[in-house]
């Protein structure tokens, strides 16, 4: 990679993080994590109580990255066709015409994904995995890049269909926002940030689809040394020996990718253990069925860096 290319890339990344953080105050880590997830090409699950800025985060990211954004509010009567689209008979052409659903976009915000029925959920999850949908024997590719940012409310379970572990594994990361600190909250209350500021002229795309794709390529080029892979494998092995179900190979691969993305965000072209540790809780805790990041913290405190 040439040096000036490197520098532009860093400027773009800084601008993305900076712009998003202007809307989501005091949550730079979560913003960076979400960005790392998108740069790794993975889907993101944001889990928090209502009103914590889940939707705002998703929306802002899409806008800053200059991506096409669709939002779908999941409810219990939502059908798979409402997500992926439907073929309708067109009398004029005497043929079935495919009407694409909201899934045909760059960033799909699946709001309150656990309110939909398992049938609908799996239709979406299938699309997430395959990056394409098949309807009436016809395959339609989804636009590139394609991200799903799903949100779910962890606490209020009445009338919900919690995602099973196997489907949680499809999400590369799970991020929790949490309450803002006092300073950010004050700024928020003073109308200096939040969702309304997004619609104003404040947020402009700092990136386009092509840049994003080259950034994703750059993530894959971040060097991972053998020593680091040792550490990564130690971590994975530890979860496998200490839990009834440990981390899957897909999780391990995701962990590596996210660590690479994090290293890029930190302005490095190689991964250090701290990068792995930074993304570890978000990548791992939902796969280990842990309610909070306490377990991942304990794992990190027990596995030595070689």
């Amino acid at each position: 990679m040439k040096n000036n290319e490197k520098i532009t890339m860093q400027t773009v990344l800084k601008a993305i993080v900076g712009s998003t953080s202007q809307v989501i105050l005091g949550k730079q880590t979560q913003v960076k994590l979400s960005l790392a997830c998108l740069l790794s090409g993975g889907h993101l699950l944001i889990e928090d109580l209502p009103g914590m800025g889940k939707t705002t985060l998703a929306h802002t990211l899409a806008q800053v990255l200059g991506l096409h954004f669709r939002r779908s509010q999941f409810t219990s009567d939502l059908l798979p066709a409402d997500i992926i689209g439907v073929s309708v008979y067109d009398r004029a052409t005497s043929a079935f015409q495919f009407h694409p659903g909201p899934v045909f976009t760059n960033v799909l915000l699946a709001d309150e994904i656990n309110r939909a029925t398992p049938k609908t959920q799996s239709a979406l999850l299938e699309a997430m995995e395959e990056q394409q949908i098949t309807i009436d024997g016809e395959t339609h590719a989804l636009p590139k890049p394609f991200f799903v940012i799903a949100t779910q409310n962890p606490k209020h379970h009445i009338g919900t269909f919690p995602l099973p572990e196997s489907q949680l594994d499809r999400f590369l990361m799970r991020v929790t926002l949490g309450y803002p600190d006092a300073q950010s909250e004050r700024a928020l209350l003073k109308n200096q940030a939040g969702r309304h500021s997004m619609t104003g002229a404040l947020i402009k795309p700092v990136c386009d689809v092509n840049t994003l794709i080259s950034l994703q390529q750059a993530v894959r080029n971040v060097h991972v040394s053998d020593q680091l892979l040792d550490y990564l494998q130690d971590l994975i092995l530890y979860t496998r020996t200490q839990f009834s179900t440990g981390l899957s190979p897909r999780a391990g691969l995701g962990l590596r990718l996210c660590a690479q993305a994090w290293a890029l965000l930190e302005g490095r072209d190689f991964v250090i253990p701290e990068d792995v540790q930074a993304v570890f809780a978000s990548v791992v805790s939902h796969r280990l069925a842990a309610e909070n990041s306490e377990i991942s913290k304990q794992i990190l405190e027990r596995v030595a860096i070689r």
Binding site: I272, P273, E274, Q277, L300, E301, R302, V303, A304, I305
Partner: peptide, 9 residues
């Protein structure tokens, strides 16, 4: 360094 504490941390 604690167990699992990287060089930078």
């Amino acid at each position: 360094p604690n167990t699992g504490e990287g060089a930078l941390d």
